[in-house]
Design a protein around this nucleic acid. Sequence first.
DNA 1: CCAGCCCGTGAAATCGTTTTCAGGAACTTA
DNA 2: TAAGTTCCTGAAAACGATTTCACGGGCTGG
Lengths: 337, 337
Amino acid sequence: MPRIVTIRTVAERAGCSIATVSRVINRSAPTSSAVEARVRAAVAELGFRPSEIGRALKTLRTRTLGVVIPSLTNPVFAASVAGMQSAARERQHTLLLTATDYEPGAEAELVETLVAQNVAGLILTVADAAENATLDLLEAEGIPYVLVHNEPTRPGRAAVCVDNAAATFALTGTMIAAGHRRIAYLAGRFATSDRARRRHEGYRAAMAAAGLEPEAPLELDYLGDAPSHAEALAGLFCAGARPTAALCSNDLLALSVVGALRTLGLRVPDDISVAGFDGIALGGAVHPTLATVDTPTRLMGAHAVAMLFTMIEAGAAPRVEHLPFTLRPGGTLAPRV
Amino acid sequence: MPRIVTIRTVAERAGCSIATVSRVINRSAPTSSAVEARVRAAVAELGFRPSEIGRALKTLRTRTLGVVIPSLTNPVFAASVAGMQSAARERQHTLLLTATDYEPGAEAELVETLVAQNVAGLILTVADAAENATLDLLEAEGIPYVLVHNEPTRPGRAAVCVDNAAATFALTGTMIAAGHRRIAYLAGRFATSDRARRRHEGYRAAMAAAGLEPEAPLELDYLGDAPSHAEALAGLFCAGARPTAALCSNDLLALSVVGALRTLGLRVPDDISVAGFDGIALGGAVHPTLATVDTPTRLMGAHAVAMLFTMIEAGAAPRVEHLPFTLRPGGTLAPRV
DNA sequence: CCAGCCCGTGAAATCGTTTTCAGGAACTTA
DNA sequence: TAAGTTCCTGAAAACGATTTCACGGGCTGG
């Protein structure tokens, strides 16, 4: 029994045409105050709210933004979506949310779905922004989009992100300054994603700048069961000449690594220092607190929406916006004595 | 430059009427294999995808589910939305996601927005399911909805939840069995929400059943800064005869409480045992691991979607589905020696 | 061989809006 | 008073799909 009160109902009640009702509602043209009052009264009495669908069909524009992220389970993405949601709401828009769940082919399919819904624009975090047929398609169709977390190398792609390389460069520098020489690099399942690559580059650059030998990255599934992590880490950290510190490519991984090291009988940070990346809230709630790079995740989502609107409304050209990161000291990172 | 290829373009290309194209696409009526082949070819060549808007306007039904939650920042809600998303995707639907950010009046407004988009149904977590004008409105309009996390007392409201009272009853029982007699109850900002109330009831019932005196609940903002929590807890736990255990109404709060107690110089669990509620993933990543009630959050989201579909498609009557919880032992809860 | 059926197809109505176009009333100005 | 403005309003045409209705051709059965 959906939607029985349409603009026609209102028009009858107010004794005018539907065109006039539309004009009153959207203030799209001047109306006499008498008519306007009658229309407003009718709207209120009937509880009328214009159908977004009817409106969208005519204008071919919806008040909806499409979102594609890998997963909501990762607090980083959850936080940025939260930022998008509140920024969108301020502008009377809603989010059509989809997640790939790390399924490779899903990106293209989800974008297609969203485009079929005539979203006003898209915000997405993709595996690789460089060679991405889906993004090419959006550009070909002229549908505005903004990337979040991705750092596109190719010009012409709009994005909101932090400078991942600079951030790991700085973080690695802090660890080196604390006296660490052998710093392991532990990567999550994102080893193939563009941002993970950039982070790794920053690590290598910092090591090289200090005249140190970068370690080969060790790839781990984050938030996989801790036992498996312990096993994977045993080889590296239970050897004679082991690293004194571990740089993890994200916070979830870092928290898991701290736990795994503990089960191996290694103390953090006494035996091994650990640092993460992202700055998720819970990093500050654990003990010892997690040393990490604090990235303004929620803000990134909000800025992405803002940027998308400048593109939609003002036709602004795509650009890359770098948001500032800060190093967050934490108990897991101690000077090497 | 949106959407240049419509069903009409396809019809011309295939040399048939738009009605036939529609029939082929939806298999809504038999077509000759020759025509069908031509239409499919045209669809493929043109990359045609039917406009959800056009379709929705005619049928007055969208392939979209509206979601209203308090916040994405809480991993509990993020996880249940993740479950909804994947369940919806299996059924070729997408989520229109909104969050109230704990703003009191927002619920009604968001639901109105979603209804204006002609969502097929709604899934929501509200502050109070008992006396809720918004839900009454949905029922009056005949729009199907399912609550998640809420435990409606009034019959006729569909919901997927755990038995919060039974769960805290069990958890409190475990603590009592471990020898604790004075068990503090710490509540989050949800003190007013129906599920928080149910949890508190379970605690009180368990205490009463054991012939113990329930403590007055202490209300805290969760994930507020730890210092403020330490301050708030100091009075209770630095007294002479202090509780030996604290039951927290959710995991985020519990993690924060553990940290706050630590800053007060109290050891967990040696001096004070702590337990949470929800079973968020990170509870297992911290040390000591968090004792808690494990609730199938993601599953709840998925089940909510499933239930919603039975209501939409089969016209099933609203019902309350209780999902099982399990007590998850953890290092924060130790026997009192 | 003819009547009757079934099957595939197209024309047209419809969904709820926005928007263009034209017309009528009121008012100003010569 | 006539002509020219200005303003407000309504009729009607979109937008892109689904769906009803009717029709024509090829069957089948008597």
